[in-house]
Simulated scan of single mutants.
Amino acid sequence: MEGGSVGAGVAVRKSTDRMAKFGDSRAVLPTVGIDIRRSQAATITEGDLILIGAETLKIIGEPMGDALGLVLQCEAAK
Score class of each variant (00 low, 15 high):
residue 53 G to F: 09
residue 28 V to C: 03
residue 32 V to N: 02
residue 55 E to N: 14
residue 37 R to Y: 00
residue 60 I to Y: 09
residue 25 S to L: 13
residue 30 P to K: 03
residue 10 V to C: 13
residue 7 G to F: 08
residue 74 C to A: 15
residue 69 G to L: 06
residue 71 V to D: 10
residue 25 S to H: 06
residue 31 T to S: 08
residue 20 A to C: 01
residue 43 T to W: 11
residue 18 R to S: 12
residue 39 S to A: 06
residue 36 I to E: 03
residue 13 R to I: 14
residue 55 E to F: 12
residue 23 G to P: 02
residue 34 I to F: 03
residue 49 L to E: 02
residue 55 E to C: 10
residue 28 V to D: 10
residue 2 E to C: 01
residue 33 G to W: 00
residue 39 S to I: 11
residue 17 D to K: 09
residue 75 E to W: 05
residue 75 E to M: 08
residue 16 T to D: 14
residue 15 S to I: 11
residue 36 I to A: 00
residue 41 A to D: 01
residue 19 M to C: 07
residue 19 M to I: 11
residue 72 L to W: 14
residue 1 M to Y: 02
residue 61 G to W: 03
residue 1 M to K: 04
residue 67 A to I: 08
residue 66 D to E: 09
residue 9 G to V: 10
residue 35 D to W: 07
residue 58 K to E: 12
residue 76 A to E: 05
residue 70 L to R: 12
residue 63 P to H: 05
residue 26 R to E: 15
residue 74 C to S: 11
residue 51 L to P: 00
residue 12 V to L: 15
residue 68 L to M: 04
residue 74 C to D: 10
residue 7 G to S: 07
residue 34 I to Q: 01
residue 17 D to Y: 09
residue 21 K to N: 06
residue 63 P to T: 02
residue 10 V to L: 14
residue 19 M to H: 08
residue 3 G to Q: 06
residue 31 T to H: 01
residue 15 S to R: 15
residue 57 L to F: 13
residue 59 I to W: 03
residue 20 A to E: 14
residue 14 K to F: 12
residue 61 G to K: 09
residue 19 M to N: 11
residue 7 G to A: 09
residue 33 G to C: 01
residue 4 G to R: 03
residue 7 G to T: 03
residue 69 G to V: 06
residue 54 A to L: 10
residue 38 R to V: 09
residue 16 T to N: 13
residue 40 Q to K: 09
residue 30 P to R: 00
residue 59 I to G: 04
residue 30 P to F: 01
residue 62 E to D: 14
residue 77 A to N: 08
residue 70 L to V: 05
residue 70 L to I: 00
residue 7 G to D: 03
residue 74 C to Q: 06
residue 6 V to I: 14
residue 21 K to T: 08
residue 16 T to L: 15
residue 4 G to S: 13
residue 25 S to N: 11
residue 22 F to C: 00
residue 29 L to H: 06
residue 38 R to Q: 04
residue 59 I to F: 02
residue 62 E to K: 13
residue 10 V to Y: 12
residue 23 G to E: 02
residue 42 A to R: 15
